[in-house]
Simulated scan of single mutants.
Amino acid sequence: MNDGVHAGAAPAPVGHYPHARRVGDLLFLSGIGPRDPATDAIPAGIEAQTRAVFANVRAVLDASGARWEDLVDVTVYLTDMAGDFKAYNAVWAEFFPDPSIAPCRTTLGITALPTPISIELKCVAVVKE
Rank of each mutant, 00 (worst) to 15 (best):
M1C: 03
G4F: 10
G4T: 08
G4M: 11
A9L: 13
A9R: 12
A10P: 10
V14I: 14
V14L: 14
G15I: 08
H16S: 09
H19F: 09
L26S: 09
L26I: 03
L26N: 04
L27T: 03
S30C: 07
G33V: 09
P34V: 03
P34G: 11
R35Q: 15
A41Q: 09
G45V: 04
Q49S: 07
T50Q: 06
V53D: 03
F54H: 04
N56G: 07
N56K: 04
R58Y: 01
D62P: 05
D62A: 11
A63I: 03
A66I: 01
A66H: 05
R67T: 11
W68L: 03
E69W: 02
E69N: 07
D70V: 01
D70C: 06
V72T: 07
V76L: 03
V76S: 00
V76P: 03
L78N: 13
L78P: 15
T79M: 14
K86G: 13
Y88S: 01
V91L: 04
V91I: 12
V91P: 01
A93H: 09
F96M: 04
F96T: 00
P97C: 04
P99W: 04
P99E: 06
S100C: 06
I101T: 12
A102I: 03
R105T: 08
R105Q: 10
L108F: 14
G109N: 14
A112Q: 14
L113V: 08
P114R: 00
T115M: 14
P116M: 07
P116V: 11
S118Q: 15
